[in-house]
């Protein structure tokens, strides 16, 4: 017996809410499975989900969440992705361009604040959207808010950086190579540990065109266009691969 759309959405929202509240994945599975079992039997007997979760799904999710201990260890898994991504992007970009890394203190502090803003914003929004029963489009719009805000913040930092004088931290040639290698090893370690190659794929998509086109005799504008084409194609291919994999997994479980 298949569940109604509304019940399935509720279970998915609960799953995301508990996950973004930092609960243990096994415990989340346990309670969502138990509720799924309940909903299947209730719907088979002609009851609606409102009779099960009450008037406020959001209050109900909170009461479930309140009985579960936070599982910081497994939630922390996603932090390196947000932290490593932008840092790796900046550092590899500058290594390719200059070979030596040097940043103003203002810029370094800016990156740290940007990272914190991003993490906080995304987790607040995730909690908000999963507790309210909103449509997918609305969820995507709301979710993009903290991402846009934190990016604007970082652009502001980059802009102000040209105007404000703070000491420059110069890493030197050896320091730059060491820092680059450390980030590289961290990315490899994170990819193996989290079982996702998103960071290497995005970095490759962004920097491969530069490396490939650097020595060609093409004009700057054609380099730019071809470069963008390669970047979008690589990311597109990766997303296509992920979606195909997800779809296969879903069909397999039905």
């Amino acid at each position: 017996m298949a569940l109604t759309q509304k019940s399935r959405k509720f279970l998915e929202d609960l799953h995301i809410y508990l996950l973004s509240s930092g609960k243990n994945l096994n415990e989340i599975k346990e309670i969502t499975t138990e509720l799924e079992d309940h909903l299947i039997e209730a719907e088979a007997n002609g009851k609606s989900i409102d009779q099960i979760v009450g008037d406020s799904p959001s209050a109900y999710m909170e009461s479930i969440s309140g009985e579960m201990k936070p599982d910081l260890a497994s939630w922390a898994k996603y932090f390196p992705l947000v932290l490593l991504g932008p840092i790796a992007f900046t550092i590899f970009g500058d290594l390719l361009d200059n070979g030596v890394l040097a940043y103003s203190l203002f810029n370094i502090i800016g990156i740290i604040v940007y990272t914190l803003l991003f993490i906080m914003g995304v987790s607040i929004v995730f909690k908000y959207t999963s507790r309210k029963q909103t449509s997918v489009t609305k969820e995507i719009i709301i979710l993009s808010l903290p991402i846009i805000v934190s990016m604007l913040f970082y652009l502001l930092v980059l802009f102000l950086d040209t105007m404000i004088d703070t000491p420059i931290v110069n890493f030197g040639e050896i320091g730059s190579i060491v820092l680059g290698s450390v980030i590289f090893i961290l990315i490899i370690a994170f990819s193996i540990w989290s079982k996702t190659i998103i960071i290497p794929v995005v970095l490759l998509a962004l920097f491969l065109p530069d490396i490939l086109l650097k020595e060609t005799a093409l004009s700057e504008s054609s380099k730019l266009i071809i470069g963008m084409f390669i970047t979008y194609s690589l990311i597109g291919l990766y997303l296509f691969y992920i979606f195909a994999k997800e779809k296969k997994k879903q069909q397999g479980s039905e």
Partner: peptide, 29 residues
């Protein structure tokens, strides 16, 4: 509402008042 029992069961289990076992059911999980 029927769902009210689950947070209560979760707490009772944490406090050691109840234990649980999982068994296969005819339909569903």
């Amino acid at each position: 509402s029927e769902g009210t029992i689950y947070p209560l069961l979760m707490r009772m289990q944490r406090e050691g008042l109840v234990t649980s076992v999982r068994r296969a059911s005819t339909a569903g999980p």
